[in-house]
Each structure stands twice: as C-alpha cells, then as structure tokens.
Amino acid sequence: MLKRSLFVVALLMSVSSAPAFADDVSNRVDSLEQQVHQLVGQIEELNNTVRQLQNQVATQPKKMTSVDPVAPQALPIKKKLVLDAPVQATAGVETIEETPLQQDASQPAQQGTIYGGVAQPADGAAPAPKLLGDLNTAAAQPQDGGFQGQVLVPPGGDQAAAAPADGVEPVSLQPETPDDLFLRSEKSLLQLQYAEAETGFKEFLSKYPDHNLAGSAQFKLGETFYAQQNYTDAAKNYLTGYKQYPKSRRAPDSLMKLGLSLNKLGQKDQGCAALGSVSSEFPNAVEAKKRAQAEFKRASC
C-alpha cells in the first residue's frame, strides 16, 4: 500500500518543476524526497481518518457491551506466598557464567556491582535456616540463582499453604459483595481500564444506590470521565455526587472536582464559584478545602 502510494507520488513529482533555490543535483533530490515525504504523510493521515471513521461506524452499536469481566484474582488484595519461581524457572533462564557467591574471595572486585551467583546445589552446605512448616525450596531455588530462597509458611498452615505454587486465591463461591464490586471498579480505574471502571461504578450505583459507598462510587464515576478528559460527563457525575450524597465523605471532593471540570469546560464563573464554596459547604473537609483553595488561586478565580 505504502509502496504503491510512493510510486504514485513519485510519478506526480516527476512532472513537477524543480525547486527554485540552488541548482545542485543532490539538493534537488533532497527537495524532491522531502516533498514525497510530505505527501506520504498526508496519505497516512487521510488513511487514518478513514480508518477512524470506519471504526466508529463499526463499533457504535456495541459500545460498552464487550467488557471483559475482571477476574477476582486480579484484585490488589494480598496474595499468599506467591513467588515468581514457577514462572521464572520456566522462562528459559540462561546459564550465567558467574562465580558462585561463596567463592567471592577469588572474584575480581566489580567496583560495587553485585552479580548473582550460579545456583547452589539444593543440598548446599549452608546451614538450613529455621523453617516454619512445609518447604517449597525446590521451586524457589532456580530463580534465586544462588540464594537459598526458602518459603516460610504461615504458622497455622492454612489453605494458602496448600496452593503456594500457582498462587491461586481461595475462590469464594459467594456472589460479589458491594464492597468487592466497588474495589474491582476502583482497580479498573487504577489500571486505566476506563470502560470497565465506568461499567462497574454504574452497576454499583444501580444495584446499591443506598449503600454507604454510593457517594464514593458516584465520585469515582466522575473521576473515570475526568481521567479521560470527558469533562462534561465528569461534571455531571460530580454534580450528582455532591447533590445526591451530601453526607458522603466524597461530597466535598465531588464539589471541588466539579469546580475543576467546569473550569476545564471554560465555564470559569461557575467553576470558580464551586471551588469557592467548598470551604463554606464543608468546613470540616480539610483536604478538599486545601485543594480547592489552591485550585482557586491557580485558576486565578
């Protein structure tokens, strides 16, 4: 495609007149090449515009419907005894020609740089560290490359000890709680998966409009749009958060961000008014007040 475009362009160029300045051959080649490049650029941009239009047409009907469910394991909650070992050991780690750590007296000094040593035999001479419960050294050893890494298992030896290798969380058979849904949506926002975050927070608000996290969910929904520079939808949701959940701990934040969104939209009067009213509306919201005051100044309200 590109080649053909170039060809067409080159044909066109050959009938155009030579550049006016400097009659040198190499200079003429240079100018010609430059013009070809500019045309290629324009074709690329045109193609891109067409592609975008096609995509818009193609995706519009099913917008927002193809959200992958977020696996519960993906939550940033604490995992038990998860080591990289199983993954890393299979990743084709090169045999590294290095001096074993034990023989470092003979190793030339590397000016403070430290290298990992070759793997010690599993039955290495070092005194075994004190262990609690089961061992999982076999899996840990290859990745530690010379360190005798040993996994210490919880004193109680709970179910986590049963599945350390694959790091799978105990799967809950219970339906997703409101808290889980909120956390999952918040996690999506963290990972910049805005579509998932939006769907999640909306689901939360429709299912649990009276939950004590609803105000927070409403605020976070606003944040989801704000992060995408969709300040109109951000402002709408902040406004809802502020009006419908005045007792929520996120209400002051909602008002403050409403002000910022309005400023972004060029509605400076209203934006500044919103920022200015944070301290009177929420005299106890220390953080939001501070922030609003700073923003009030920064926007030269």
């Binding site: 604490k78 995992k79 038990k80 005894l81 998860v82 080591l83 990289d84 750590l101 034990q102 470092d104 430290i114 990992g116 040593g117 290495g124 070092a126 005194p127 560290p129 004190k130 262990l131 609690l132 840990a140 530690d144 010379g146 360190f147 005798q148 890494g149 040993q150 996994v151 210490l152 298992v153 919880p154 004193p155």
Partner: peptide, 29 residues
C-alpha cells in the same frame, strides 16, 4: 496473617541484592 516470608543464604556482599529481592516479594504480595 502471615502474607509472605522467605529466607536467603548468601555472602554478605550481596546484602543489597537480597534486600531488593525482599522488597520485590513484598511489592508483589
């Protein structure tokens, strides 16, 4: 709850690397 724990044996020279490995385990956990 005990979330993670590992022991290492090596020469004192690699103390900082072991510290980084521990920090990696904490970060990942």
């Amino acid at each position: 709850q005990l979330v993670a724990g590992t022991s290492f044996t090596a020469t004192p020279k690699v103390a900082r690397r072991i510290a980084h490995k521990i920090a990696d385990l904490i970060y990942k956990s």
